[in-house]
């Protein structure tokens, strides 16, 4: 699972009002090269929850992202490359995601988060 997916995911357990962001527990992180495409990052940027991305990247061991960001920074290619790296090249291979409200764990195995809910959580 990559961080852009993490940035989209929120827990949808019944009764949870704010299931975002899911806390990341890391066991193994992989890095895979992905072709850099500035347009994708620019297009995605307004939809990102920046704080969740920064925190997520830190948890995965990448601390290059600035604390605050706004759209004027999209001009700089260096910044775009950093965001690109954080969004698309860091993979959470093994670990877990935790719902911030209920503490329910969604295990991540082989890079696939198991988001299946139990019957009483639907």
């Amino acid at each position: 699972m990559r961080l852009f997916t993490h940035n989209m995911l929120s827990s949808n357990i019944k009764g949870v009002s704010n299931g975002f962001p899911l806390r990341i527990e890391v066991e193994q992180v992989l890095e895979k090269q992905v072709d850099f495409n500035p347009d994708f990052v620019k297009n995605l940027f307004p939809k990102l929850e920046w704080k969740a991305l920064v925190d997520g990247a830190r948890t995965l061991g990448y601390a290059e992202l600035p604390e605050e960001a706004d759209s004027s920074m999209l001009e700089s290619e260096e910044f775009l490359r950093k965001v690109h790296h954080a969004l698309l090249e860091l993979h959470l291979e093994e670990g877990a995601l935790t719902c911030p409200e209920t503490g329910r764990k969604f295990p991540v195995t082989k890079g696939i988060p198991n988001m299946l809910l139990h019957e009483d959580e639907v």
Binding site: M1, R2, F4, T5, N7, M8, L9, S10, S11, N12, G19, F20, K47, E49, K110, G111, I112, P113, N114, M115, L116, L117, V122
Partner: peptide, 27 residues
């Protein structure tokens, strides 16, 4: 698992669409 073997580019989630999608709004 087969998708992993085929090394697809997208991110995969194990989930049941009948339980609703666990995604943030409007993205």
């Amino acid at each position: 698992n087969i998708a992993l073997e085929r090394e697809v580019e997208g991110d995969l989630l194990l989930g049941d669409m009948g339980q609703g999608l666990a995604l943030r709004p409007g993205i």
